[in-house]
Amino acid sequence: MDKPNDIRWQQRFQNFNKAFQYLKDTLTIKEPSDAERAGIIQFYEVAFELAWKTLKDFLTAEGFSVKSPREALKTAFQNDYINNGDLWINALDSRNLSAHTYDEAMAKELVENIKTIYFPLLEDFDEWGKQQINE
């Protein structure tokens, strides 16, 4: 791997890991208030953004050329760097929707999806990144 690109994705992954830990901590709140729910959503948006950008940088280091989040996710899935490609695309769509719209029912549904679907996806990504760094 090219050293600057190798270092770049690892630095980005460290930032992802910090955001992921904040998300993990906020998900322990049993009955989140409106403000706490907004915090969960914000931590999810940041963690997801850093996850796809980490993938983009990793793929670049591997010799791929990707420009968009969707392209990064598809390429990573097609090359077995991530699993559950459809769920990653759904996570992207939810992140896009949450960043541009707000309504209480949607926020509650998104928090539930973050807890049950998207957090486990990011948790798997966290493990993947740690394994890649240790190789």
Rank of each mutant, 00 (worst) to 15 (best):
E109Y: 06
L110I: 09
F20R: 01
I133A: 10
S33L: 07
K53N: 14
Q21M: 13
L110Y: 05
N79A: 04
W52K: 05
I29T: 14
G129M: 05
R37L: 13
E109T: 14
E36V: 06
G129V: 03
A47K: 01
M106T: 11
L87N: 10
A47R: 02
L97R: 12
R95A: 11
V46E: 07
L73W: 05
T28Q: 14
L110G: 03
K53G: 04
T101G: 01
I82G: 02
D93S: 12
M1H: 08
P69W: 03
D6Y: 12
D34C: 01
E123C: 07
P120D: 08
K30G: 04
V111F: 00
F77H: 11
V46G: 00
F125E: 05
E127Q: 14
Q132P: 00
L97A: 13
I117C: 04
K108S: 12
K3Q: 13
K67M: 09
E31V: 12
T28R: 10
S98C: 03
A91G: 08
G39F: 02
W9I: 06
P32E: 06
A19I: 09
A107F: 09
T101W: 01
N83L: 14
I82Q: 04
G85Q: 12
R8S: 08
P32A: 09
L121H: 02
F125I: 08
E127H: 09
H100F: 08
F77A: 13
I29F: 06
F125Y: 10
E135H: 12
H100Q: 13
K130V: 07
F20V: 08
R95C: 10
K53D: 10
S65L: 12
T26N: 12
K74T: 15
E45V: 09
E109W: 05
M106I: 07
E31I: 14
D2G: 06
N90P: 00
T28V: 10
N15Y: 05
E104P: 00
G129P: 02
Q10G: 04
D80L: 09
G85H: 06
L59Q: 04
G129I: 05
Y81L: 15
Y118C: 01
L87D: 14
T101Q: 11
T26S: 14
I29V: 15
E127F: 11
